[in-house]
C-alpha cells in the first residue's frame, strides 16, 4: 500500500514536470532559431518565420533554410539519442551503456567508407542511408553475437560483443581510409558530431524513422521495468525476456542509427541524460523514457546554441561542446550523485 501511495504522489509531480520540460524545450528551440553565428535581429527572424520576408533576403535563407531544419533535427536527434541510451542502459542493465559502445558509430563509419570505396557513391544525402544501414547492421551484429550460447544475450555478453564489433568495424574503417584518400576526406564529415551543414533533405530523410522510433519507444517502459528486476524475476512475471530484448535492440538500432547517420557521433547525451532522468523520476522506465525524450533535446540544442554563439563568425561543433561540458558533468554525477544502477 505504502509504495503505491509513494508512486501515486510521485506521478502527481512527474506529470506536470513533463509539461514544464515541454515549455523549456519550446524556449530552447526558440533560442536556437533566433540565436546563431550570424547576427539577425529578432524582428527579422519573426518576419521570416511568418513568411513575410519575401523569401529572398539572406536573413530569410538563414532562418528558414539553416536554423529551422537544424533546430528540428536537433530536437529529433537529441530525443532519439536520449531514449536510445535509456533503453540500452535498461536492457543491458549497464549504467555505462551508450550507443557508441554498441557499435552504432563505428558501424555507420565503416559502411560509409565501404560505400565510397566499393560502390563509388558520393554526396552527403546518399551517405546517410549507408550510415543508417551500417549502424543498424552493427547493432544487430552485436545482438546476434551476444545471443549465441544457451543463456542468450546477457548484459555481459552484450557489452563484450559491442566492444568486439566496435573494434572490428574500427579497424575496417582505418584500413580503408589509409589506402583511400577520398574516403578519408568524406569521412571527416562524421568524425565530430555536428548539427551544422544539415539541411531540409537530411531532416526529411531521417525524421520518419526517428518519429516512429520515438513513439514506439514509449511503449517499452513496462517491459524495461521488468527486465530491470533481473531476468529470472522478469521471466517469473511472465515476460518473454528474449523477445523484449530483441525488440528493444531493434528500437535502439533505428533511433541511434538514424541519429548518427544524420549528425555523426554525438557523445554524452545518450550516456548522461538517462541518469538525469533516473535522478528525477526514480527507477520507473515509464517515466524515465519520456523524461529522457525531453531532457536530451534541451541539452543538445543548448550545447549547439553555445557552440554557435561563442565562436562567431565561425562555429564549434555540438559534439565538441558536449564533450567539453559533458565530461565534468559526468564526473560530477559519478562523484556526488547517486549513480543509480540501471
Amino acid at each position: 500500500m505504502r509504495s503505491a501511495t509513494v508512486r501515486a504522489r510521485r506521478a502527481l509531480a512527474l506529470g506536470p514536470g513533463l509539461a514544464v520540460l515541454c515549455v523549456i524545450l519550446a524556449l530552447v528551440a526558440f533560442l536556437s532559431v533566433t540565436l546563431g553565428s550570424r547576427d539577425i535581429g529578432l524582428p527579422e527572424v519573426l518576419r521570416a518565420l511568418a513568411g513575410l520576408g519575401g523569401g529572398t533576403a539572406i536573413e530569410d535563407t538563414v532562418t528558414l533554410e539553416l536554423r529551422v531544419p537544424r533546430t528540428l533535427l536537433g530536437i529529433l536527434v537529441g530525443a532519439a539519442l536520449g531514449v536510445a541510451g535509456a533503453i540500452l542502459q535498461g536492457v543491458t542493465r549497464n549504467p555505462l551503456a551508450d550507443t557508441g559502445i554498441m557499435g552504432v558509430n563505428s558501424g555507420a563509419a565503416a559502411c560509409v567508407v565501404l560505400a565510397i570505396t566499393v560502390l563509388g557513391v558520393r554526396g552527403v544525402s546518399v551517405y546517410i542511408w549507408f550510415a543508417f544501414a551500417g549502424a543498424i547492421l552493427a547493432t544487430l551484429l552485436v545482438y546476434a553475437i551476444a545471443s549465441l550460447g544457451r543463456e542468450g544475450a546477457t548484459p555481459v555478453k552484450l557489452a563484450l560483443a559491442g566492444a568486439a564489433v566496435t573494434a572490428g568495424m574500427g579497424s575496417l574503417t582505418t584500413g580503408i581510409v589509409m589506402t583511400n584518400v577520398d574516403a578519408l576526406n568524406e569521412l571527416r564529415f562524421w568524425q565530430v558530431g555536428s548539427l551544422a551543414g544539415r539541411y531540409a533533405p537530411i531532416l526529411t530523410g531521417v525524421a520518419p524513422f526517428l518519429i516512429a522510433g520515438l513513439i514506439a519507444s514509449l511503449a517499452c517502459g513496462r517491459a524495461l521495468n521488468g527486465l530491470a528486476l533481473g531476468e529470472d524475476v522478469a521471466r517469473g512475471l511472465g515476460q518473454r525476456v528474449g523477445l523484449t530484448r530483441a525488440a528493444a535492440f531493434a528500437l535502439v538500432a533505428v533511433l541511434a542509427g538514424a541519429a548518427t547517420a544524420a549528425c555523426g557521433p554525438i557523445v554524452f547525451v545518450g550516456l548522461i541524460v538517462p541518469h538525469l532522468a533516473r535522478f528525477i523520476c526514480g527507477p520507473d522506465y515509464r517515466w524515465i523514457l519520456p523524461y529522457a525524450m525531453l531532457l536530451s533535446p534541451i541539452i543538445l540544442l543548448l550545447a549547439d546554441v553555445v557552440g554557435r554563439v561563442v565562436a562567431a563568425p565561425g562555429e564549434l561543433q555540438v559534439g565538441v561542446v558536449l564533450g567539453v561540458l559533458g565530461a565534468p558533468v559526468f564526473v560530477g554525477i559519478v562523484r556526488y550523485g547517486r549513480l543509480s544502477e540501471a
Binding site: 553565428s37 538563414v62 539553416l66 536554423r67 554557435r308 562567431a312 563568425p313 565561425g314 562555429e315
Partner: peptide, 19 residues
C-alpha cells in the same frame, strides 16, 4: 578575424558565408 590558433584561415559558419 583569422582563427588565432591557426591563423591561416578565418572560419565562417555557413550562416556567415556572405560576410
Amino acid at each position: 578575424t583569422p582563427d588565432p590558433g591557426f591563423p591561416y584561415w578565418e572560419n565562417l559558419s555557413w550562416e556567415n558565408a556572405d560576410k
